[in-house]
Design a protein around this nucleic acid. Sequence first.
DNA 1: CACGTTATTAACAATTCTGTTGATTAAGGA
DNA 2: TCCTTAATCAACAGAATTGTTAATAACGTG
Lengths: 215, 215
Amino acid sequence: MGRPAGRSSEETRARILAAAEQEFAARGYDGARMVAIARRARLTHAMLHYHFVGKAALYRTVLERVFGAMTARLEEAILAGARGGAAPALADLAAASHEIFAAHPRFVRIMLWEVAAGGPRVDAVAGPFFDRMATLVRASGRLVRPGHDPADVAVSLTGAFLFYFFDDPLVLRLWGRRRFGPARRRARAAHLRVLIEALMPARRRGGLSSGGAAS
Amino acid sequence: MGRPAGRSSEETRARILAAAEQEFAARGYDGARMVAIARRARLTHAMLHYHFVGKAALYRTVLERVFGAMTARLEEAILAGARGGAAPALADLAAASHEIFAAHPRFVRIMLWEVAAGGPRVDAVAGPFFDRMATLVRASGRLVRPGHDPADVAVSLTGAFLFYFFDDPLVLRLWGRRRFGPARRRARAAHLRVLIEALMPARRRGGLSSGGAAS
DNA sequence: CACGTTATTAACAATTCTGTTGATTAAGGA
DNA sequence: TCCTTAATCAACAGAATTGTTAATAACGTG
């Protein structure tokens, strides 16, 4: 026992967070076990309590990391959309969303757990992310095909996007999706664009900014 | 204590199942507590172990009930689709799916938990349901807009449908969806139809049956 | 109507999981 | 170099949760 040679506090902290992200993504908050996280990080679970206050705090930190990254990327996409017109903005969003989700596969999983929980935990941590999404939806509400409720469109698109990037064994087996590759990636982006355009056909004037997209 | 007057075994069994369905839908398998289920059913949790073998078995029974009903309804929809042409079949499916999901709000919730778990539990119990869905997708693969992967279409539609009928506090608050009413129901059905037709535009010949929809 | 059966509870047992503590060893500055 | 601080573990404590059992009261059948 005792302090191991040549390992910094930051290093183990990072190891713990990575392990926790995996465990929480795989089993959800209630299903996750502290000892399992410790095992993944090759530590005893006492270290989790040394570096973090407890399970809830650890989970919160994981959520902050993962939702924080997503919110930042989403913000970028919104800004990019605000600069161009509606059509490029939508194309940008499809591409950006794809890139984001593909780069953070565990985010989708954790977000699904949170959505299933429908939960109180979401409010504090993932709130900004959902706010950004809601802003985006509201901003692009004018673009929605007439006769459709913008909220409906938002829900449908969210669901489609989430499942689209839900890279998990169940979906893989059920629908036989291939994993990410260049050709696959292009096909997916095109598919997403069609989906978006079906619900929000590109129109002449105005980017996403008009309507309150930025902040 | 002792046996209460005028209450049958079937009655309490039903009460337990209803309570368990609520609890599992609200908190998922790991989050659900046996005592909480018992409290919902106005019993002691010893009764859960008297009427069912344990937590896992109780959950399995709930899954069987809820997925069984869904599978049966889905089967009906497939058969109805097989009788008509492609366009009526799609419209039927939109309407049927709506009716199904609306009638079983907790199903969506439980299914979301299962999908998030990505899990081993799904295989045995919900397998037939997912098989039916896969069958449906494969059967309607010919109807998919050229250039789209049928699997992509299936995943997107599943996600959109699930979220669409995910009648939970989070979605309600985030996107401000109203609860089910006649007008709302019509608007939703129309929205779904547009979504379906965007990905699977109605074509001239052939119903869903051609291609292997039935069994 | 007596008596075995069934359904129910309260209390208990066992397990599992989170969180804590004291000993122990490396790191790092005075 | 020495001594304080930081990091780590093994073992333990406490809490929560699932599962069990003995007692008990209604039910139903002969």
